[in-house]
């Protein structure tokens, strides 16, 4: 359990720093980035707590932050989907990185 505590602690700090260190991008210059815990929790209503799905919908508890950001960007850019394209377009790059890092940390 100690080990499980230790890793998210480190990543938690990292995620917070990432958010603040992120250079403002033109399209999202004025948009505040919500706390990573809140952004991540917004995925769990469809994908299950911590991303562990009960079925029918893909689980997202087993992919790295890098892979999640990449997948979300692909959806945003038009990769075929029923709903993820519409959802992915609702997040800025900074938000995607923060939520993906948090979900990765929860599941380490």
């Amino acid at each position: 359990m100690l080990r499980k505590f230790a890793i998210p602690m480190a990543v938690g700090v990292g995620a917070a720093l990432t958010v603040f260190a992120m250079p403002a991008q033109s399209m999202e210059k004025k948009m505040a980035v919500a706390d990573a815990r809140l952004l991540a929790a917004g995925c769990f209503n469809c994908h299950g707590p911590a991303g562990e799905s009960q079925g029918h919908i893909d689980e997202i508890n087993d992919i790295s932050a890098d892979k999640m950001v990449k997948k979300m960007k692909e959806f945003r850019e038009g990769k075929a989907s029923t709903i993820m394209g519409r959802i992915a377009k609702g997040f800025s790059d900074a938000e995607l990185m923060a939520l993906a890092a948090h979900i990765e940390a929860l599941n380490k």
Partner: peptide
Amino acid sequence: FLQIAGATGAISALSL
């Protein structure tokens, strides 16, 4: 999950 989430939450709140 809860314990981890709790710990992560507390820490990121502190770092924020």
